[in-house]
Nucleic acid binder design. Structure first.
Lengths: 343, 343
DNA sequence: TCGATTCGTCGAATCGATTCGATTCAACGT
DNA sequence: ACGTTGAATCGAATCGATTCGACGAATCGA
């Protein structure tokens, strides 16, 4: 493979001159510049990443720590991984995947060997041990999930409170008077995941401002248990006419249960999803609050790259940037009115 | 961050000695070795990846080229990305994601800057331009998909022919006499995707060896069209009792259509999936031929790493290794018998 | 015509780890 | 007593790009 020396020889200049032409950090005569450019072209020269980052102490690589805890589907994680990579490329960076089962070990490896300039952490739990490790290593990072308990770390998250509130508000506005909110699962609430807690808060918010009857039921990681709760809540009379769902992992199973109850969607029961990606739907058009994956990815990459310059020294004074992404209804889907007018 | 020089100073030896202790490539006395080990521990020393790979011309990184064509769901891609990363770690390698919309440009970038030692290409089409680029760049690679038209490239794929044949054979063995095989979509067949063609061949194979009535219908990327074809094929009388599906992207939509026809699964219609990952199912237990993601990932990583040493010179003689993964039924699910005995 | 300034380019040091001789020192044989 | 062998360690070159100080030539003003 061609090196900068080869290019220099071919152009009849010194290697440093080639470097200046490429970086533009010093003025070079038109004539020389043309000669160098031609040599670069002819040899198909590409600077070697390892040499460049050895010298500059910058790799132009972002590390993405993928969650390995069971729970959220890996499908959404993959979607994020791809969109984050795209966003990183937009800033001239590449992305390595950190999939170590021991997340802390993975962080130590990346930070220690200097393979990346910063990390993006997905699906952060409160009190995530990786965050402590990152802080100890003084490694720049941004989180893809809100984290109240960890000030000093930049993060991005969907405004789950607003998202759930919006979904409920829109459902009520469509004319539904008896609405069920199927929130995050028990175990997610128990482990104090931000999206779970904020979703519940959004439901309370919406309940306070509507005259519709609103019942909140936690979901479950166990399909059987989820089915039981669903049957119970839908058997109340008069029956609810709308179901707003935040816990989408078991969505297909949910649809099976609804079908088994003899209910059609959306004729008998309106179904509204909160925070879904198109992949979840498999070609169906259900009304939903989108999870703006591209927007969140772009934001978290910006924060991670922004954290590279800022050292711990000046972090003391300023508080790091956070970003709550506003929810939107997906375009092209409307919530239908209840079948029996109730006003 | 600590360098090898710091470690050497602290241990009272030369940097080269530290290197020899760490690599074990020369004999070092117990005493010195202990001193060096202690210094490494105390300073938390980690060799810098950029320096190491500049010198050794090895990055210990694999590039994963993620497909950006619409079609196959990104969910499965994400699952593969994670499992491939795990497999790579098992061989001491990390994984960068190449998500460039222009796949060839991405390959050129990685190969040119030497950020990775080899590439893994997902979802390869026949006549994939990336393969030509890789060959021209003499960059080691392995493909995650069979490729008859590209000898000279190692690849791994599920044996789709055997998978479809197995699914049909098992369905017939469960007592079904009228079976519909919903194959890959038109556009996949037209673009000569390996899994599509082999799946069809598997259906022909199974048809030749069974007495059951077997009808093959291509799927469609368009939900409406898919619905039309499904209604048509299920309205034949006497009605088919089993549906074997290879095209899983629109599975939820498919289930909706079946429900809309007033059919229950599996009571009225047995449903068997070919090449699915657990994520596809959302908690449901449907009989299916698994897509052995972990096994395929491990195999493709082995091939990619194996291709690193082997240069084009000796590739001329030997043909590169291929690996067809044998299909298996997922455990814990059985195909039910048809409701009206037909024998 | 001579010093000062500017412009364009070069040479050498640097980043951190690896690796190939070279060197030191002890033990050994004659 | 002296050369020989071998074990353990050191020193220096190397990988490829970046960057700072220096240097020669051209240009300017006086």
């Amino acid at each position: 493979m061609a090196t900068i020396k080869d290019v220099a020889e071919r152009a009849g200049v010194a290697p440093s001159t080639v470097s200046y032409v490429l970086s533009g950090s010093r003025k070079i005569s038109d004539e020389t510049r043309r000669a160098v450019r031609a040599a670069v072209e002819e040899l198909g020269y590409h600077p070697r990443a390892s040499a460049r980052s050895l010298r500059s102490a910058r790799t132009r690589v972002l590390a993405l720590a993928v969650p390995r805890v069971s729970g959220k589907s890996r499908g959404a994680d993959g979607t994020f991984a791809i969109d984050i990579s795209d966003a990183a490329r937009g800033h001239g960076h590449d992305e390595v995947l950190i999939t170590d089962l021991d997340g802390v070990a993975g962080m130590r490896r990346v930070a220690g060997s200097g393979m990346a300039d910063a990390a993006v952490l997905m699906a952060v739990e409160e009190e995530d041990p990786r965050i402590a490790a990152l802080r100890e290593l003084e490694f720049p990072a941004a989180l893809l999930a809100g984290s109240e308990s960890d000030p000093g770390m930049p993060w991005v998250d969907l405004d789950w409170e607003a998202a759930v509130a919006l979904a409920l508000r829109e459902t009520a506005a469509a004319g539904h008077r008896r609405i069920v909110f199927l929130s995050s699962a028990d175990h997610e609430i128990d482990s104090r995941r931000g999206y779970a807690l904020h979703g519940l808060r959004g439901a309370r918010l919406a309940a306070a401002e509507t005259t519709a009857e609103l019942r909140t039921v936690p979901s479950s990681g166990d399909p059987e248990e989820l089915g039981r709760r669903l049957r119970e809540v839908l058997s109340v009379r008069p029956a609810p006419t709308a179901l707003v769902v935040q816990h989408l992992i078991l969505l297909p199973h949910l649809l099976d249960e609804i079908t088994a109850l003899g209910l059609r969607v959306p004729e008998d029961l309106a179904l509204v999803l909160v925070g879904s990606i198109p992949d979840d739907l498999g070609g169906r058009r259900l009304p939903r609050i989108e999870l703006p994956v591209a927007e969140m990815s772009a934001a978290v990459v910006r924060l991670a790259i922004g954290a590279i310059g800022a050292d711990t020294s000046d972090t003391a004074g300023e508080h790091p940037p956070h970003r709550l992404i506003s929810p939107r209804m997906a375009t092209g889907c409307v919530i239908g009115p209840p079948s029996e007018p109730s006003s």
